[in-house]
Design a binder for these strands. Sequence first.
DNA 1: GAGCACTGC
Length: 702
Amino acid sequence: MAVLPILQFEDKIAETVAENPVVVIIGETGSGKSTQLSQILHRRGYTRSGAIAVTQPRRVAAVTVARRVAFELGSRLGEEVGYAIRFEDRTSDKTCIKYLTDGCLLRESLSNPELNQYSVIILDEAHERSLNTDILLGLMKRLINRRSSNLKVLITSATLDGVKVSRFFSGCSVLNVPGTLFPVEKLYSTERPTNYVECCLKTALDVHVREPPGDVLIFMTGQDDIDKMVFKLEERIQNLEEGSCMDAIVFPLHGSLPPELQIRVFSPAPPNCRRFIVATNIAETSLTVDGIVYVIDSGFVKQRQYNPSTGMYSLDIVQISRVQADQRAGRAGRTCPGKCYRLYPRTVYDEEFLDATIPEIQRSSLAGSVLYLKSLSLSDIDILKFDFLDPPSRESLEDALRQLYLIDAIDENGQITEIGKAMAELPLEPSLARTLIEANELGCLSQALTVTSMLSAEVAIRPTHSKNKEKKRKQSFSKLPDGSGWGDHIQLLQVYESWDRADYDPNWCTDNELQVRSMTFSKDVRKQLSQIVQKIGKGSLDVESGMRQKKSDKDYKKLRRALCRGYGNQLAERMLHHNGYHTLGYRSQLVQVHPSSVLEADEDGQLPDYVVYHELINTSRPFMRNVCAVEISWVQPILKKLEKMNIDKLSGGSGASENTETIENKTINSPMQAVDASGTPGSLDSKIQAARERYLARKAKR
DNA sequence: GAGCACTGC
């Protein structure tokens, strides 16, 4: 095997690390940084004073790289070299090189904020800018200055943002390590296509007819387009004149494909046959397909983003960044020189594309991250001024604080509460963590563990009922429960319990069109959560009760009540004369129950007056996904809290040091004002009053 | 009456 480029730099790296607490290593694909950096520092004696931690954004990467390094060092996995990912810790007392996901290191930092067991921490693939890596970058910057022992931090990054990371760490050293990629010729379109599926199709056929052997990787945005493309491409290839060119096979590749269909792309093409792989951005970083010589890049990606001013997610098709475009092109140059067909003009790449993809931290709800940072109780840290490489907006941080306050994780002064501390221990979104704690108080912990695990694993249930008569025939085969009218959370509980009655048979999942993968995942989550709540409750909690008991509505009442508390920041009230809802929060939104919901209307066709929702998603319209019916008496205490909420106090008075303009703005837009669904501001007091009146009016009508 | 990219504790 050829010597990895990074080994030629061994002395230089060791020297730089010896002299500097932080070093940025810019290493292209194939430089060997992931496997070699840890070994170099191990050889130089850094494992004598502690272990070397190497973080990865993905689980598979942590496992495969650890395996490789153990092999190279001739040791058994789990001894000298080990890894830790969720549900699996393969390390021992002997472990001195530990690969772990960035999320795992964050968890470790919760119980040991100084991370004293490590002499070196390497944040690998930092250019991917995962939410967890970004938080770690901030924590590392702080740790460097605080830890008395000799901590070394290495950050690996791609070419473009190396300088920026260096600047973040007060101009630390940057080392460049070349990679082993072959040149990729980039071919641009003269204009942007009006129909990019057709354009991809045409380009793919051109490559097939004109270019020498080599597989083709096509980047598209989602499952629908991929399926369309696969179908059309197969059809067109069949119609080509026989013998005019080589054979071809076409594979789809995306995340929701079952694993056995995903791995098909790893077997090489049969002789005299070209493979076409039509993929989402899963093929950009997560899965590496060998044999690719041609890449067709649509220039688009589907991206989920959170809008803190509405509390809503949307899934948008957006233009990729230059970093992303180059990453895609690089996929053609792994085994020999390649070609990349960019279905956009050069000027679009140069002038319209962003330098780098907007980091996740600026596209997500930050409630979980803010709670995590608060629970580290770093007394010297003000959350609104936490030193991020790319700070999230103030609006987004304030949104997180409001959410945390409404579910009792922080008090009115922004201090973390006992409840908040317990929530941070749980590897769940804050709302679900809060639900578990409340469920324990109310005596329905076991059920809540099931529901939160199912939501955490994002188990998708196919439609179980339909008013459409044509589909009625199909329905008779359906054995899946329907949530007894209370909504999707209850259905998830019932589905899991049915699986339990089937002794967790994977075939039961397939028979019911449930993904085995996600069901198994939810079982693992449930087990992990049970262990953690047992630890918090000192082993006295009932985490298994009633799984196979027949449930009555009364049983669900406690659970729904716990959910109402947990989703105190995600409540909605139905509007008087129809089945639309408006959210009850800092800013009200007009929303509808997602059509996939099993929530039932009463005999008058009216949906429940109050619901909680798991998420707001703006697709063709704003929808609440996963809803559960709750009762007004449970909602009222939360509305009172909303009324008391004061963002200036929640943010710990840090507004005082902001510039004057912001302070003035704050005073004018008092957070005590809420905008109701019609867009008119009104005090929350009057909102609650109005809600009560509407409720009474409805009651009288019945 | 809609349709979900990708990760992770």
